[in-house]
Amino acid sequence: MKTVILMRHGKSSWDYDVSDKDRPLKERGINDAHMVGKTFMKNGIQIDFAYSSPANRALHTSMIFLRNIGFNLNDFQVTEELYDFSGQDVKRFIQNLDNKLDTVALFGHNYAYTNLANALGDQYIENVPTSGLVQIEFDVSEWSKVSKGTTQQLIFPKHLKQ
């Protein structure tokens, strides 16, 4: 069994004249990442390894989320392959993961994550919102065989604020 957790970065700020990779989170993005992390932690799911896009907003989201779940950052890596907006690079990344890992968390971007959630999961999602988390489980023993899985969990900030 393999499980991938896709988390889109938090709401970013356009208030600064910086490159796309350097764009920071807004306060709302920070707060939402905390809220999603605390909610996820209640499920008791153990993540074997976590990866983030090098973009500031994704990296910051990953640090907030991972701290909230008490994750060991020795099992964390930044990878350029997750700075992807179509989903093709991320899917290739997933299929090349080490088979010793069973559950991985990936922090990145839309439209890649909405496309992947729909291509890999069994629930249609119109849009993975900022700080949105989608957990998909696959009945395979090798990452290279990941294709269609079962969407196990959606954690979207707007559902937590009701």
Rank of each mutant, 00 (worst) to 15 (best):
K42T: 10
A50N: 03
F85R: 11
D48W: 01
N118P: 14
K145M: 13
L106A: 02
I94A: 09
D98P: 06
Q46H: 10
V134F: 09
V104F: 01
S62C: 07
K91F: 09
I69R: 09
T39A: 10
I155N: 09
M35F: 07
V104S: 09
F138H: 12
Q46T: 12
Q88S: 14
V36T: 04
Q95S: 10
S141R: 13
H159K: 15
K158Y: 15
H159C: 11
L120Q: 03
D84Q: 09
K100G: 12
A105E: 04
D89C: 06
K100V: 08
L97F: 11
W14G: 00
M7R: 02
P24N: 01
E27F: 02
I136W: 10
D48P: 00
S53Q: 00
T150Q: 15
Q162T: 11
R23W: 03
E142Y: 13
Q123A: 09
R57I: 01
N31I: 02
K26D: 04
L101P: 05
K100L: 07
A50V: 02
E126V: 07
F71S: 00
L160F: 14
K2S: 10
Q77P: 00
Y124T: 15
K100C: 09
F40C: 04
L160I: 13
L101K: 14
E81C: 05
T79Q: 06
N72I: 05
E126L: 00
S147R: 15
R23H: 06
V36S: 06
K158F: 15
Y111Q: 14
N99Y: 06
S144N: 14
L6I: 09
V36A: 03
T103S: 09
K148R: 15
S53H: 01
F138G: 13
Q152M: 15
I64M: 04
G108H: 01
D48E: 07
L101M: 12
L97R: 14
P54G: 01
S53W: 00
E81I: 07
Y16R: 03
F138A: 13
Y51A: 02
K161S: 14
T130N: 00
G87Q: 12
N31C: 02
D84S: 07
L116N: 03
S141D: 15
G121H: 01
V18A: 02
L6K: 09
G87T: 10
D22E: 12
V140Y: 11
P157Q: 11
T79W: 05
D102L: 06
